[in-house]
Design a protein around this nucleic acid. Structure first.
Lengths: 337, 337
DNA sequence: GTGAAAGCGCTAACAT
DNA sequence: ATGTTAGCGCTTTCAC
């Protein structure tokens, strides 16, 4: 078994307090004593027991990031931002996924690891009752990411979906003078999709056009689904001033693929925009015009908020709203005539 | 602060031992007593202190998965497999990234969270001295993923890179009768790249051809780099029976993009294969022939190995070798003539 | 079926 | 500058 503080103390012929002091640099120890202790530590390969430490200190300086699932670049960017911020603030970051294969989201308060953390950044796939319920049982400080949960006071970092979608739609109106917008969303229950849709509606309306209900389609954010859907529907879309607004880049890629295979040129015959600015957007041809969601920043700001709360538990709840930026590439350039 | 076992005991008018027994279901308690305790627990919202528990039990039933970085589908698939297996075996899985922005790999034994885990699955970007050094200081059971580390006894799960590359190269020889193979690898220091290269060499040699040194190129696994490189070099490649072997799918995508832009048809003028079978392989056009690395299985087998070791600490070190499978799509179909 | 008490390894207040 | 000791919350013998 591993060596404890008392063995180090015995070997260095000091008391355990002195060892503790050396380990934590908490108060000044005689340099010679200190050297003796350090040598003993090295010789024994002593490592403090984290459980005992946590029990006494009532904190671990470890925080968690719990995501709905860890698939896709979106999440890895969040993680990158969170990780780096956590280290800067002297915390370690541990990541966990709620999703368990097909068994659906799992997060109950009995989750053992939560009790080892000082706090946690949480992101739910959907802000439903289930989520709210889970939340009420989380017994430690938390920050919500990309989700609003009215009624529960909390810190949060959210994306201004409407602003992002508005920028794209306005770009379409301004540069291509879109007459008809085809909106291809994720699930109808998905809040992001609904917000983006609302922004499209509004921009169209304000510019004297309208977004026809028949041109709103709810898919599932996946390439294959969008590809199959576009194969069937594409022929009805092509026409003067038609553009597709896909609610994420993957679906945009699927639609572009179907279009090119059907001989529909892009951006010539049809303009298209995506959302998120994931890797595929730059890799596909034509490269995709899209809205860049500041993913890494979401992670870092959330961690920042959490750590601030740990330091000052009684500060008022804060909400940070981040705006996507427009990334103009080739998929909806004005066709030369 | 949070409620402790003794408050529950007081409220239920039993001793703390009884509360403990109820919480852990360890031994039989009188149903009436049990009910009383359970009610007290509910009323107080009691949650056992994980540090105290860990201190006493000397285990947390939590394991870790430490990856070089969390970018890309490769890792998320590993995570998915590991997660699901961990839950099946009664463990919780926590994930951590070694990479800290541009600050390079970080993993020192002082990493606080390691001390809270029962064991850890580790994957290094490169099996260098640094890695070996870190490893020697990890004071808990571990399993190595996709890395060999001779000299240190350990369990591991590795990919049979050679077998995968061989399947691809043989496919190229058999169906297209390749005369010239252009190998586009990751960094020259990357072990996977070297193994895949060796397999290509061998297959070419065995079939009476050779892999010219001038046709070996070391890049960095990235789309943009491969794209830029292909733009420059492409013209020298096209010719009867030439094929490109890209060491991952992203680079293959970059090369394909450059080729199509230059008017080189694929698979007509040039055949190409990738490696890994990440999402992009199915999404690009032509869809990419590649070798599917069983990523999720890597994760699940590693966790399985780790948990087995936790149960039987003295079993001999085990190595599991997983073989990639050939996924035939369109990027190197025989051109009709 | 239940309780008393030792002990896990550590920190911090207090004493010297 | 260093040692002594209480106590953190829990599990687990050992009595009864």
């Amino acid at each position: 078994m591993s060596v404890s503080i008392s063995e180090v103390a015995r070997r260095a012929r000091v008391s355990i307090s002195t060892v503790s002091r050396v380990v934590n640099g908490s108060s000044v120890v005689n340099p010679l004593t200190k050297a003796r202790v350090e040598q003993a530590i090295a010789e024994l390969g002593y490592q403090p027991n984290a459980f005992a430490r946590g029990l006494t200190l009532r904190r671990s300086e470890i925080i968690g990031l719990v995501l709905p699932d860890l698939h896709g670049e979106f999440y890895s960017e969040i993680i990158r931002g969170a990780n780096s911020q956590a280290r800067d603030l002297g915390y370690e970051l541990l990541i966990s996924s709620m999703r368990d294969g097909d068994r659906g989201p799992v997060l109950d308060s009995s989750q053992r690891y939560l009790a080892l953390l000082d706090g946690v950044v949480l992101m739910f796939a959907e802000a439903d009752d289930n989520a709210r319920d889970l939340l009420s049982r989380v017994a430690l400080p938390f920050v919500l990411l990309d989700d609003d949960m009215p009624g529960v006071p909390h810190d949060s970092v959210i994306i201004d979906q409407q602003a992002g979608a508005r920028k794209l739609a306005e770009h379409l109106v301004d540069t291509r003078g879109v007459q008809r917008l085809i909106f291809v969303g994720g699930p109808a229950t998905n809040l992001d999709t609904r917000e983006r849709e609302a922004a499209c509606r509004e921009v169209m309306r304000r510019s004297g056009r309208r977004l026809d209900d028949g041109d709103i389609h709810y898919l599932n954010y996946e390439f294959e689904t969008a590809y199959a859907f576009a194969r069937r529907s594409l022929s009805g879309w092509v026409g003067p001033g038609a553009c597709v607004f896909a609610a994420n880049d993957e679906m945009a890629a699927g639609i572009v693929t179907a279009a090119l295979e059907a001989g529909v040129t892009i951006p010539g015959d049809l303009g298209i925009v995506g959302f998120d600015d994931t890797r595929i957007a730059a890799m596909m041809r034509p490269a995709l015009t899209t809205a860049r969601v500041p993913m890494a920043e979401m992670g870092s700001r959330a961690v920042e908020l959490l750590c601030r709360r740990l330091a000052k538990p009684d500060s008022p709840p804060t909400q940070i709203k981040l705006e996507p930026t427009l990334v103009i590439r080739d998929s909806c350039r004005v066709p030369r005539r």
